[in-house]
Each structure stands twice: as structure tokens, then as C-alpha cells.
């Protein structure tokens, strides 16, 4: 085990490498058969259409890494969008201040999740199932379901529509958050503890880590970025309504898990999550640009179906690779007898 394996072999065993291969294959395939796939406008579309889900996936990742889950991020996006509308349109707060206030509310809502999960040791799935309903319910109650906030300032709307250096603003935002989270998770002692906690909460506790506080941090972070995603979403659609972000939580989880993060915690990289987001975004957009599929009128359905299939194959492939490696290891160890742990 301690022998260094050849570089390409370790690379192939990593889910990120497989995903990168899938992504490149998608790009090549869609460039060949898709109509106007390989254009700047199309890539701007891909980035703009997946930025919010991408942001949610980036903060879902540390949560899943600690062994948790957050089903409430999509609902929180809706609540934050509505609150931003209330701040700007009913309380007449200046846009920058309203945005800052929205981010604070998002972080606080994440803090509610984190507090309940860590303070009372409640299962994240249940707490966030409750807040999934609660946040969406509050958004509906505030707007009575019907109120739509529109006419935001042009400077704010630019966030959803303008580009800098060819990349839409929200693409830069996504990169900034991706780098920040990557540094946090992989480069700081603070963030590396997420992985330790997910790998073994007991072990992390014995190692002296403030496990509960660290876990709570991941939910606060998720709330904060969900609010950020709400601002991006509002700017892109030019309006805030209570149903913003419906179903985004499941799409974010899909991207994270596809990116190789174990749903049981302890294993995963931010780079993998980014690749997971990109694979899904390119796949669903590319399919609609294939004339044969577009003419059949099945683009949206096929996109969802293939994303589901990709998820299953990625997971099953990972398991298969692992069991093959285990079998090979066993064969080698039979040739050179070693004490075997009972499995």
C-alpha cells in the first residue's frame, strides 16, 4: 500500500479525473453535433443558467463532507429573494445595504439550521426538511404568494446579465467562491477539520476539535451563499418571487455527489464539485442544441433522465473500481502472505 502508484493510475482512480474525461467528452461531442454549441454566447448561457445551483453546490459540499445535508437551501434562496424585494421596495433601503442585509438574514437562517443541528444534536436531514417547508412558507406568507417585486436598479441587474472579459459576472462570482471554499476546505486547518469530522466525528472529538461549532459553521456558510445566490437569481430574472429556487437543493446535491463527495461524509474535493456542476450544466444545455433532439421536443426530459443515469453510473463505477482494486490487492497479498483484517 505504501508503494507509490504510477501517476496516471492514481489519477484514473479519482472521480475528478473520470469527471474531467466526461466533461471533455461532452464538450467534444456537443461541439461536433450540437448547433452553435461552441460559441461565446452559449458558454455565457451555460454559466448564467447554472451559477445559482453551482453556488449552492459549493456550500453544500462542506456540509456533506462533515456527514450532514441541507435540504433547505433552495427554499432559503426563495425567502432571501423575497426579503431583498421587501428591503428595496417596501422599506426603500438602498440596494447595496439591502443586499448586505439579505446576506445577513441568509447567514442567520443558516445559523438556525446549524444551531438546531449542533445545539440539540438533531439529524440534519430532519431539521432541514422542517426549514425547507418553513423558509418557503415564510416566503409565501410574506408575499401572500402573489406579490412579485420588479424594477430593480440597472446596476444591480447587471449582475445577472453583463459580462467582464467574456465571462458573465456571476461566473466570476462563482470562481471567487469556488477558490475561497477550496482554500478553506483543503488549505486551512479549520476547513480540513470538516473532512476529519465526516470521516469520524468521534475521532475528531478526541483529537480536540470543537466538532459542533465547526459543523454549525458549514450551515451558516450555506445560508450566506444561498442569500448570495438569491441576489444573482433576482438579478438574472429581474424579479423576486416566492417560488425562486424551487428544487435547487436536489440539483445541488446531485452535482456534489456526482463530483465524488461521499454522501456519508469524509471524502470529497471542491474541484470535484465544480466538475460535477459543469458536467450537468453542459449536458443539459448541449442536448437541447442537438437538432434531432430539439425537433423531437424531448430536450428537457432527456436532460433530467441522463443526469440521473450519469449519477448512478458514476457511483456504480466508483464502487466497481474500488472492488476491483480490493480484489487485485487480495490477489497480491495471497502471493505474498500477510495478516489480513477480517472484513
Amino acid at each position: 500500500m505504501s508503494q507509490p502508484a504510477p501517476f496516471f493510475k492514481t489519477l484514473l482512480a479519482r472521480p475528478e479525473a473520470v469527471l474531467l474525461f466526461v466533461l471533455v467528452a461532452e464538450l467534444v461531442f456537443f461541439s461536433a453535433v450540437g448547433r452553435n454549441f461552441n460559441t461565446a454566447d452559449n458558454f455565457a448561457n451555460i454559466v448564467r443558467h447554472s451559477a445559482e445551483i453551482g453556488l449552492l453546490a459549493l456550500v453544500m459540499m462542506p456540509i456533506i463532507l462533515t456527514g450532514g445535508i441541507d435540504l433547505s437551501v433552495g427554499s432559503l434562496l426563495g425567502l432571501c429573494a423575497v426579503l431583498f424585494g421587501v428591503f428595496t421596495h417596501e422599506w426603500h433601503i438602498a440596494t447595496p445595504l439591502a443586499a448586505a442585509l439579505t446576506l445577513v438574514v441568509g447567514a442567520a437562517a443558516g445559523g438556525l439550521n446549524g444551531g438546531l443541528i449542533t445545539g440539540l444534536r438533531l439529524p440534519p436531514l430532519i431539521v432541514t426538511l422542517g426549514t425547507f417547508s418553513l423558509f418557503r412558507g415564510l416566503a409565501e406568507a410574506i408575499t401572500k404568494g402573489t406579490m412579485t417585486y420588479k424594477d430593480f436598479s440597472p446596476a444591480f441587474l447587471a449582475l445577472g446579465h453583463e459580462r467582464a472579459l467574456g465571462l458573465p459576472y456571476q461566473g466570476w462570482l462563482f470562481i471567487a467562491i469556488a477558490v475561497a471554499i477550496s482554500v478553506l476546505v483543503h488549505r486551512t486547518t479549520f476547513g480540513r477539520s470538516f473532512q476529519a469530522i465526516g470521516f469520524s466525528p468521534e475521532g475528531a472529538r478526541y483529537a480536540g476539535l470543537p466538532v459542533q461549532r465547526r459543523i454549525a459553521t458549514t450551515y451558516v456558510l450555506a445560508g450566506f451563499v444561498a442569500a448570495l445566490a438569491a441576489l444573482v437569481f433576482t438579478a438574472r430574472l429581474r424579479q423576486a418571487r416566492a417560488d425562486a429556487g424551487s428544487g435547487y437543493e436536489l440539483q445541488a446535491i446531485t452535482a456534489v455527489v456526482l463530483g465524488g463527495t461521499s454522501i456519508f461524509g469524509g471524502v470529497g474535493t471542491v474541484g470535484g464539485t465544480v466538475l460535477g456542476v459543469a458536467c450537468v450544466a453542459v449536458l443539459t444545455t448541449g442536448l437541447k442544441l442537438i437538432p434531432a433532439i430539439a425537433l423531437q421536443g424531448i430536450g428537457s426530459e432527456l436532460g433530467s433522465l441522463l443526469t440521473g443515469a450519469l449519477l448512478i453510473f458514476a457511483l456504480a463505477g466508483g464502487v466497481l473500481a474500488k472492488s476491483l482494486a480490493a480484489r487485485r490487492a487480495r490477489r497480491q497479498s495471497l502471493a505474498k502472505p500477510q495478516p489480513q483484517p477480517i472484513t
Partner: peptide, 8 residues
């Protein structure tokens, strides 16, 4: 993981 991120 850094390589993966850079690649991505």
C-alpha cells in the same frame, strides 16, 4: 484536489 480544481 488542487490539481483537480485548477483543471476544472
Amino acid at each position: 484536489s488542487l490539481i483537480a480544481l485548477l483543471l476544472a
